[in-house]
């Protein structure tokens, strides 16, 4: 049986750990709240952009705008952007994202498509560097408060290369934020832009009712890049919120199991202490008996 003093030391150490995980859980909870607000606040803008493109889109525009260039089945080269977090201690969060990215790369490779990997976030970059996979670009400075500017910076070179035909598609692997407890890793195709009108509003004639300045074409041309940037922005914001959700869950589990461990150790400690006392009494009694005799 372990010594009571040894047990006391371990109890104290686990208690400290529990204090830390508990604090991290609370920090994650408050950050999650703010990150969730950001996800929700970003929705109206995104909805407005898809609506406008849906209203102005017509099939003949697709040929004129490079960003609408539909590639069909002959996808030669894809840029895959993997978004992960910069920090760990959030359970399987980054692992799941990395796994999905690898799956998607294998899938594309099987179809004979070349894949270049772009990393955002330290964890994903670290993993691919570790296994010796080449990254076409990487950024670790975005953190958990992404701005539209970050998204624009990430997308600018990709849009340019897509327009010039150097790459045929841009996909992003990110954590979709359905709720703090449901954040499935997801592959989303950002480019080419999928025409929303086909799926959504079937009213192709709605376009004629507007006074358009300078012209429908010019508006589409200006709005498409915003739409593409916004898709990336949303992926960044949702992943950031999902990260805090995952960390909260992970830290809650850690706090709970630390609590269980303390309970167990304390029980062992009490038993050991009792055993020691019993033994001491026995020794005293034994000693007294011996003196009497």
């Amino acid at each position: 049986m372990p010594k009571p003093r040894e047990l006391r030391r371990r109890i104290r150490s686990v208690e400290n750990t529990r204090q830390i995980t508990k604090t991290m859980e609370m920090v994650a909870t408050s950050k999650l709240k703010r990150a969730t607000d950001r996800v929700i606040a970003a929705r109206p803008y995104a909805a407005a952009l898809s609506e406008i493109i849906g209203e102005l889109y017509s099939p003949d525009l697709a040929e004129r705008f490079p960003l609408l260039r539909q590639v069909g089945d002959r996808v030669g080269r894809v840029a895959l952007v993997l978004i992960t977090s910069n920090r760990g201690l959030c359970g399987a969060f980054n692992g799941n994202l990395i796994r999905l990215a690898k799956q998607r790369m294998e899938e594309l490779n099987r179809q004979g498509t070349e894949v270049e990997l772009h990393g955002i976030g330290r964890k994903g970059i670290g993993y691919f560097r570790y296994i010796g996979h080449r990254l076409a670009s990487q950024r670790q400075d975005i953190g958990d408060k992404p701005t539209p500017r970050h998204a624009a910076e990430v997308m600018a070179p990709l849009m340019e290369r897509f327009a010039s035909g150097e790459i045929d598609a841009v996909e992003v692997v990110f954590a979709k934020f359905n709720s703090p407890l449901s954040t499935p890793p997801t592959v989303m195709r950002i480019l080419p832009v999928t025409p929303v009108s086909a799926a959504g509003s079937g009213k192709g004639g709605g376009r004629g009712n507007y006074i358009l300045r300078p012209s429908a074409e010019a508006i589409v041309e200006a709005v498409l890049p915003l739409y593409v940037q916004n898709a990336m922005f949303r992926a960044l914001v949702e992943t950031a919120a999902a990260e805090h959700g995952a960390r909260r869950t992970a830290m809650k589990n850690a706090t709970d199991s630390a609590g269980e461990m303390i309970e167990m150790l304390r029980r062992t400690y009490n038993r050991a202490r009792q055993a020691q006392i019993t033994q001491e009494i026995a020794e005293i009694v034994g000693g007294a008996e011996a003196l009497k005799g």
Binding site: R38, A41, P44, Y45, R213, P214, N230, F233
Partner: peptide, 20 residues
């Protein structure tokens, strides 16, 4: 609306905006 959040929502009597 801005990309990050709705900036204003409400009733108004006139709007003057900087078009292109």
């Amino acid at each position: 609306l801005s990309p990050e959040r709705p900036v204003f929502e409400g009733e108004a009597t006139a709007v003057v905006a900087p078009a292109y």
